[in-house]
Design a protein around this nucleic acid. Sequence first.
DNA 1: AAATATCACTTGCAGAATGCAAGTGAGCCG
DNA 2: CGGCTCACTTGCATTCTGCAAGTGATATTT
Lengths: 185, 185
Amino acid sequence: MQVSRGKVSAVKGKPKSKQRSGCPVSISLEALGDRWSLLIIRDMMVRAFRTFKQFQESDEKIATNILADRLQKLAAAGIITSEPEKSDRRKVNYRLTEKGIDLAPVVLDLLIWGTRHEETGAPNAVVEKMAANREEVLAEVRRRWKERDPVPFLPSFANVGGDRNSSRSRPHRDGGLEAPANRRC
Amino acid sequence: MQVSRGKVSAVKGKPKSKQRSGCPVSISLEALGDRWSLLIIRDMMVRAFRTFKQFQESDEKIATNILADRLQKLAAAGIITSEPEKSDRRKVNYRLTEKGIDLAPVVLDLLIWGTRHEETGAPNAVVEKMAANREEVLAEVRRRWKERDPVPFLPSFANVGGDRNSSRSRPHRDGGLEAPANRRC
DNA sequence: AAATATCACTTGCAGAATGCAAGTGAGCCG
DNA sequence: CGGCTCACTTGCATTCTGCAAGTGATATTT
């Protein structure tokens, strides 16, 4: 599971915590209930990130030791896999498993909730269209995962300085792909 | 927001962390990304818990200082409210706000994901029916919230010792209410 | 080939968060 | 009044987090 690259992390992170209860919500949160795991999954899911460096340079600036720890935990939980890139053996490719891509509804609902109830960098109109076309959006995310589409599904929304929740979207590529909920598929 | 009951908690918990990014998923996780917040919300949402003592005795056995801290943070985030019970002024009633009940899809997604991909105490058949009738389930949860229905929507599923994911459900009350997805409403 | 750069991590350390057990004080109850 | 319940708070040890600075293997450049 872990590419032999010497050394062993000192970060203990989440220990093999003996389940606190059998409740599925609780068990899910044992794997995902922290500040970073779902953000990594978001990056893999909608931004098509694959490598350590990409996650590291993501908008939230996760510390590298925590990132290494979370990637290992997610792999141990069967949510992602890691394998060395053939063309450049310094690189490691991380990919969501089926179990991992099944978290798409969770990420989407957090996206919708955050946009509706907080000041964010995401345009309301775009997100509301996604909410209205939930099933199509989820199908499209899954299709891209299955086909290993390297093109991001959504732009960054980091947008810390600019207008919040503005209704005009800023397409990050001229392909109309950032508002997939528009399309009839 | 906080009932004047003297003293101030020593737990620092999550500080007013300057937003790491404008991404709605990230902002949502700033409020919810920990081991306990969503469990408290689950208890309020599907188990109709109202008081500190109920949360404290919940299956996962949260420490009381952490519980007090999370309740205060959730109130500060506008996800719950707290007000003293009129009939017994020792008690405090916690309730989800509209913003809080809007987290129902997230909790439901975690319930479904956990049940599908982990060994849990929840019966697959019941959860799959809920997944198939998502909108009805969400509507029912919201209706109960609006009407302040004090009857739990689902039983505990803690079930640490027993069979995991068994398909026979154990109704926790003889009302057929634990599988609302069956009903045509 | 040697020097330099890139990539995926580790390490060390300070400060923050967590968990546990033991209070504390206001409010009800007999 | 005395004892009890409820919603917390306190102290302390342990664990986790974040930052800055490595490290070692593999490209890439000169």
